[in-house]
Simulated scan of single mutants.
Amino acid sequence: MAQSPRQLPTVHGRGAQSSAAPQRFGLAAREVDGDWLDQLEELDGKQPLRTTVTDEHPRSILTFNQSPDIPFDRSVNAYRGCEHGCIYCFARPTHAYHDLSPGLDFETRLFAKPDAARLLRETFAKPSYRCAPLAMGTNTDPYQPIEGRYRITRELLEVCLETRHPVTITTKSDRVIRDLDLLAKLARLDLVAVGVSVTSLDPRLSGLLEPRAAAPAKRLAALGKLVEAGIPAHVSIAPVIPAITDEFMERILVEAAARGVRSASWIMLRLPHEVAPLFREWLTAHYPDRADKVMHIVQSVRNGRDNDPSFFSRMKPSGTWADLFRARFRLACKRHGFNPPDRDLKLDSTRFIRPESHGQMRLF
Rank of each mutant, 00 (worst) to 15 (best):
S200R: 03
L201C: 07
L201V: 00
D202H: 00
P203N: 05
P203W: 07
R204A: 14
R204M: 11
L205F: 07
L205P: 08
S206E: 12
L208Q: 14
L208P: 08
L209E: 07
E210R: 14
E210W: 12
P211T: 01
P211M: 12
A215M: 11
A217T: 10
K218L: 15
R219W: 01
L220S: 06
L223A: 11
K225D: 14
V227P: 01
E228A: 14
A229V: 01
A229K: 15
I231V: 15
I231Q: 00
A233H: 03
H234L: 12
H234P: 01
V235I: 05
S236C: 14
S236R: 07
I237V: 15
A238I: 08
P242I: 05
P242T: 13
D246N: 10
E247T: 15
E247Y: 09
M249H: 07
M249F: 05
E250A: 12
R251M: 11
I252K: 00
I252T: 01
I252D: 00
E255A: 13
A257L: 09
R259C: 10
G260P: 03
G260M: 10
S263T: 15
S263E: 07
A264M: 01
W266D: 00
W266S: 08
M268E: 06
L269T: 00
L269V: 00
L269S: 05
L269M: 12
R270V: 09
R270Q: 15
L271N: 02
L271K: 03
P272H: 05
E274D: 15
E274T: 12
V275P: 05
L278Q: 04
R280M: 03
W282C: 01
L283P: 02
H286R: 09
H286N: 10
Y287I: 13
P288Q: 09
P288I: 04
R290Y: 07
R290T: 06
R290N: 10
K293G: 02
V294A: 11
M295N: 10
H296S: 13
I297S: 00
Q299S: 11
Q299E: 14
S300N: 13
V301T: 13
N303H: 15
G304Y: 09
